[in-house]
């Protein structure tokens, strides 16, 4: 039962990230490079963190494979969000995704109360999204 819940949460996260990407494609003309760099860093890091924790909770016997998958996922997400703006946001989003993706399966293996920690990280993710929306509306 718990595994199905984790897979559902992962699916919802993927949908949120894709929807946010298509929203940013429409409004990218009004976003400056400073906000663009922060958006690419936050989205690459948060995608790598969430996918690392959820995947290592679901399949605890494949540490190496999950580290590789999470790093590639963070790299591509940071690069895609950074390519909306310019070359420097691309490089910084890619690097941050790589670093967080190499670290996040280790966090997932040592936590003691998994459900509480997963809800806390999701609250953090939603808070980041709300902050980004407010900054886009004000710019």
């Amino acid at each position: 039962m718990a595994k199905i819940t984790i897979l559902l949460i992962l699916y919802v996260d993927v949908c949120i990230a894709l929807g946010f990407y298509s929203y940013l494609r429409r409004v990218k003309k009004i976003i400056g490079f400073q906000l663009g760099m922060n958006i690419s860093i936050v989205m690459g890091g948060m995608t790598a963190l969430l996918s690392g924790i959820l995947l290592i909770q679901n399949y605890p016997f494949h540490f190496t494979l999950i580290t590789v998958i999470t790093t590639l996922l963070g790299l591509t997400t940071g690069a895609l969000f950074g390519l909306l703006f310019d070359y420097q946001t691309f490089v910084s989003g890619l690097t941050n995704g790589v670093i967080v993706g190499l670290m996040s399966p280790m966090i997932g293996t040592v936590i003691e109360m998994p459900s509480l920690f997963i809800w806390f990280v999701h609250a953090f993710f939603v808070l980041c999204l709300i902050t980004i929306f407010v900054s886009i509306k004000r710019s």
Binding site: M37, Q88, V91, S92, L94, T95, N96, V98, I99
Partner: peptide, 10 residues
């Protein structure tokens, strides 16, 4: 600054 950050971190 951006390039220094990227290469230093990795």
């Amino acid at each position: 600054k951006t390039m220094c950050m990227a290469i230093t971190m990795i």
